[in-house]
Design a binder for these strands. Structure first.
Lengths: 197, 197
DNA sequence: GTCTATATGCTGATAGAC
DNA sequence: GTCTATCAGCATATAGAC
């Protein structure tokens, strides 16, 4: 499954990922990318057929890195509550440590290309989401597993998505960015709701 | 507070909103916008100084429309539980009925311009978020109100944000898009967590 | 207030030398 | 595999007629 990528090609992709995450497909020119890598713009066309091909290669590159990480935390043998806790911690850490991953997914969803979303769903999220669905089924048989799974992911992802805006909202503290803090909050809310006790 | 906008100017802004929501600032050219409105590109520059000014005017236009709606559902006199329910329903309906609003906020967050996010926070979300914080304080004194408020918003918003991707994930049903369904799910999860009963 | 015509620069992409 | 040189097209924006 793991394809071998030549060094220079990988160097271009590594540079492309943060640029595309920050500015989107239209916001990154082949010139600016070439400058970033320290190459001539024409050289990029030796490694990739065109800009779109390069973009897709960069997406595959970053997504392949993370698809594995996502499933691991869910597959451990433990009680549903324990697995939820482990998953929340691993997921918060992942999203916190690799902001590009989150941004690129957001941009893909916004772009709304159905073929690409299909690819994303099947190649990156299928195994992860299947495991999460089964966890949801064990954890809360009375809930719609699909909605619950989306809610769990949303609770984590949204916290980090909205971070740049949160800086300007009331009650904000730097501690709110710590993965452990977010994980604890999310798990507590999921298990018992707002009922204190 | 409500500024008077000439008809032709308003017509341009109304056309610009869905275009910017769909393709982002870089993805919309003055040419394509002009074509959409049925005007010559040069005419746009009679109404707006430049593209950035036009974009900001479009943002103010769509946000001013919604800032009011957001606060209303929270200000009613009722028990915290009842207010949460009312808010969830109104919020789900708003996000469902006006996808552009959600997309434009997402794009603003991704763009990450701190000045513009500050403006968004103070002019659009301040009153709304303050009310939501106070509801959170009444509802769950044991929780960090800031985190809880973000979680409530995230549960709703993320559900609709991820809709294009959800189409390709397991367990999906068209009913998952209905605002009432999402609101019921979110409120149930918030009040009692996954504990069935 | 809307148009025609146009300036200027940046874009993705190619041909061909080394 | 990397470069120089260059193309055609589209971008934002302006000047000025009607």
């Amino acid at each position: 499954m793991q394809s071998i990528i030549p060094e220079s090609k990988a160097k271009i992709l590594e540079a492309a990922i943060p640029l595309f995450a920050e500015a989107g497909f239209n916001g990154v020119s082949m010139r600016s990318l070439a400058t970033e890598v320290g190459l001539n713009p024409a050289t990029l066309y030796h490694h990739f057929q065109d800009k779109h091909t390069l973009y897709m290669a960069a997406m595959s590159f970053v997504f392949a890195r993370r698809a594995e990480t996502l499933s691991v935390a869910l597959s451990a043998e433990a009680t549903p509550e324990e697995r939820l806790k482990k998953f929340a911690e691993a997921f918060c850490r992942l999203i916190h440590d690799d902001p590009d991953f989150n941004k690129l997914i957001q941009r893909e969803i916004l772009a709304g290309d159905n073929g690409r979303l299909q690819l994303l769903a099947s190649q990156v999220f299928h195994e992860f989401f299947t495991s999460l669905l089964s966890l949801c089924g064990e954890l809360a048989p009375g809930f719609d597993s699909h909605m619950l799974a989306i809610s769990i992911v949303g609770l984590v992802v949204y916290h980090y998505q909205i971070t740049p805006l949160r800086q300007h909202l009331l009650g904000r503290s730097p501690a709110h960015d710590f993965p452990e803090k977010v994980a604890t909050h999310v798990v507590r809310l999921l298990l018992r709701g707002v009922n204190t006790g």
